[in-house]
């Protein structure tokens, strides 16, 4: 791909990156950081390409190290983010069962304001 196309894509991705997080509530700062952290684990794709083209044992060894590190970043990142988010539940209803997030139960005037688009 030519330089200008790559540059165009990069610049557009910068704006998308700014845009998708600009309104995030501080409630989710930690999961967001962790989720973004998992996404850059996609360097695994690069590590696999380099390892797959390695001709020399030394190059292969270093590339495989990169694969291990990148996998840890990617897999660990998504798993730990999921674990965090698993805990974000709505107000508990009957018998301690979590109310599904869509089952909105207006409990008080104040508890409704959280989910709206802000």
């Amino acid at each position: 791909m030519d330089g200008i196309s790559l540059l165009t894509i990069t610049v557009l991705a910068v704006f998308v990156g700014f845009e998708v997080v600009s309104k995030v509530s501080s409630t989710l700062h930690t999961p967001l950081m962790s989720g973004a952290n998992a996404i850059h684990g996609i360097i695994l794709v690069g590590a696999i390409i380099v390892a797959g083209q390695a001709a020399h044992p030394w190059v292969l060894a270093v590339a495989l190290l990169a694969v291990v590190l990148a996998t840890a970043n990617l897999v660990g990142g998504f798993v730990v983010t999921d674990r965090m988010l698993e805990m974000f539940r709505g107000r508990r209803g009957n018998g301690g069962r979590p109310v599904p997030p869509d089952g909105h139960r207006p409990r008080s005037e104040a508890s409704d304001s959280k989910d709206g688009a802000r």
Binding site: M1, L6, A13, G17, F18, S26, I39, I42, V45, I49
Partner: peptide
């Protein structure tokens, strides 16, 4: 590597991470 996915994913994280850090 000339890999568009890495460019997009990395830039997304770089940009959103910068905003998040500033926030």
């Amino acid at each position: 590597l000339g890999n568009v996915l890495l460019v997009v994913a990395g830039t997304l994280v770089g940009a959103s991470g910068t905003i998040l850090t500033r926030a």
